[in-house]
Design a protein around this nucleic acid. Sequence first.
DNA 1: AAAGATACATAAGAAACCAATGTATTTGAC
DNA 2: GTCAAATACATTGGTTTCTTATGTATCTTT
Lengths: 113, 113
Amino acid sequence: MNYSSELIKGTLKTIVMKLLADNKKMYGYEITQRVKELTFDKIQITEGALYPTLHSLEADGLVTTENEYIGKRVRKYYSLSPSGKNKTKEKVSELADFMETMKFLLDIKPKTV
Amino acid sequence: MNYSSELIKGTLKTIVMKLLADNKKMYGYEITQRVKELTFDKIQITEGALYPTLHSLEADGLVTTENEYIGKRVRKYYSLSPSGKNKTKEKVSELADFMETMKFLLDIKPKTV
DNA sequence: AAAGATACATAAGAAACCAATGTATTTGAC
DNA sequence: GTCAAATACATTGGTTTCTTATGTATCTTT
């Protein structure tokens, strides 16, 4: 099973920023794989979604980049800027709040395991 | 406070369907007001978002409609069809699952009130 | 009588993502 | 040692979905 794509909309940026907050620096491909791992394949970020997101974060000054050479191949690392770190906290807590609201709205009871 | 609009994306259809599941039949304006009430103004569905959504649900056979006259004014009620009811269950449980995944991803601890 | 709430709806545009495609290097299996 | 798969960057065209703005009309309250 994996989620219908519309659910990812609006949360992708927050996911990416949170990962960067926890890992100091990551490169694009690494992000897609990490999310895949962490969610047991339920969320698969496509590159067509990821790169525009990273570039827009960079354009907004929320992340900085540095290139590293691995053999002949360039690897582009992304890190949160100070303002990116603040923004990440905001976004994560907004999403947490939103999820509480949705839980109430949808009357979702915690699973009794 | 109200949520940044991108968060609503992808959940609107589910919210509307869940409301219809709980209330048998509702009309458009009523839905916008109910959501506003239930979320203490945090989520405000605009009519420009709602009506296209309702029409698409109708086109997909998930809701049926009936007109009622209140004085001279037409009020259009929407109800879930049998397949709409099934779809609602699917959507709600998918969203619940998604939220669990997001919680884990974002490492959100329950608020200690 | 006027303003605000109720109630339907559409249209143009923006945002955000998906699917497809492209390029190139490195690794692992046989 | 070669070929497929994985790694790693990225862009483009298209679709979906929402926002903002607008339109029409009725009902209620002051």
